[in-house]
């Protein structure tokens, strides 16, 4: 059986501009796949091609087993899409929008009514269902947008920057909903985001896109470990400093640290912490403070592109 999403050399140009440059990716059944990159990297263009809204100018992609160019209608039956900015008609109520979406997906009036009620309850909008969407907060709009994309119980769900512009509480609530969908229903989720934390929190695998090209792909753990081992920083009493340093540098490569602190790279990953602490204890060295600094996805992005995704400073 084919994978939910497969793209091979997928390309989209606009005149001389290459928005998406020959990307290859596969997303496995039941996976939350994060597509991470800065504004203008090509995330939305890629999503628009995968959701049949934009024709590729090169390469091919299959979603839910169907070709996005030649079998667009079949793809549309199998996918749910929540695009950027929660495109919702402010004059309609949440209920009306859900009912319209049900009709667009060929769901009968009776079934549609039942589905809409369930979905409104699921996203916590039952009380607001008959209010016009123009009165909704940003978080409520996003939740409704999510509900709209689920009306026909899609096999693959595309979420294009679903939390952009949301306050932290609404963002976390939406993450929770995505996790639930993925765990309880097994929906495959393709999520684009420019937020490192979002990708780290939600995605089982991540592709980092920059200037239309995928520059890294893998699990968050693997991507981070590829950048370098985590750094363990330990504070000890001044009298124990030299001994502690000797013990620790036997277990990992010494790294720069401020005065009075010892830092080493944990080549064995975070599991090696225990052996470092045990070795220090064996030497009767009292550890005053321990800090573990793992490489972040921003470090991964910087390693791949020479730029920082957060903060915008060059490395």
């Amino acid at each position: 059986m084919s994978r939910p999403i497969e793209a091979e050399n997928l390309t989209r140009t606009f005149g001389n501009l290459v928005a998406v440059n020959s990307i290859n990716l596969t997303v496995e059944e039941g996976e939350v796949f994060g597509f991470l990159g800065p504004n203008g990297a090509g995330k939305s263009t890629a999503v628009r091609m995968l959701t049949t809204l934009l024709k590729p100018t090169g390469g091919a992609a299959r979603v839910a087993g169907f070709d996005v160019a030649s079998e667009a209608s079949m793809v549309r039956k199998k996918i749910g899409v929540a695009l950027q900015d929660a495109a919702i008609d402010p004059l309609m109520t949440g209920n009306e929008l859900l009912r319209l979406q049900a009709v667009l997906h060929g769901i009968s009036r009776h079934e549609g009514k039942q589905r809409c009620a369930e979905l409104l309850e699921r996203v916590g909008l039952t009380a607001a269902g008959d209010k016009r969407v123009g009165t909704y907060s940003g978080g409520m709009r996003r939740r409704l947008d999510l509900a709209l994309s689920l009306v026909h119980q899609p096999k693959v769900l595309f979420l294009d920057e679903p939390t952009t512009g949301l306050d932290p509480t609404s963002r976390v609530a939406l993450w929770e909903e995505v996790r639930t969908l993925n765990k309880e229903i097994g929906t495959t989720v393709f999520l684009t985001t420019q937020y490192l934390e979002e990708a780290d929190q939600l995605a089982q695998r991540i592709a980092i896109i920059d200037n239309g090209r995928i520059v890294r792909e893998g699990t968050p753990t693997k991507l981070k470990s590829d950048v370098g081992a985590p750094t363990l920083r330990v504070d000890v009493a001044e009298s124990d400093f030299e001994t502690a340093k000797q013990v620790m540098t036997k277990l990992g490569e010494e790294r720069p640290a401020r005065k009075g602190r010892i830092a080493i790279g944990l080549d064995g990953g975070t599991r090696a912490i225990t052996s470092v602490l045990k070795s220090l204890e064996d030497q009767d060295i009292e550890v005053q403070h321990v800090e573990l600094d793992e490489p972040s996805l921003d470090d991964v992005f910087a390693d791949a592109t020479g730029r920082r995704l957060e903060g915008g400073s060059d490395t």
Partner: peptide, 30 residues
């Protein structure tokens, strides 16, 4: 949760729904 049945979308229903949406907007925004 109920299972939405897979069926072909009735294009006539779609046409009517889109027409009704326009008229509803007109009623709400004279």
């Amino acid at each position: 949760m109920t299972t939405a049945s897979t069926r072909n979308t009735s294009q006539l229903h779609v046409t009517v729904a889109i027409t009704k949406r326009g008229l509803m907007r007109m009623r709400r925004l004279p």
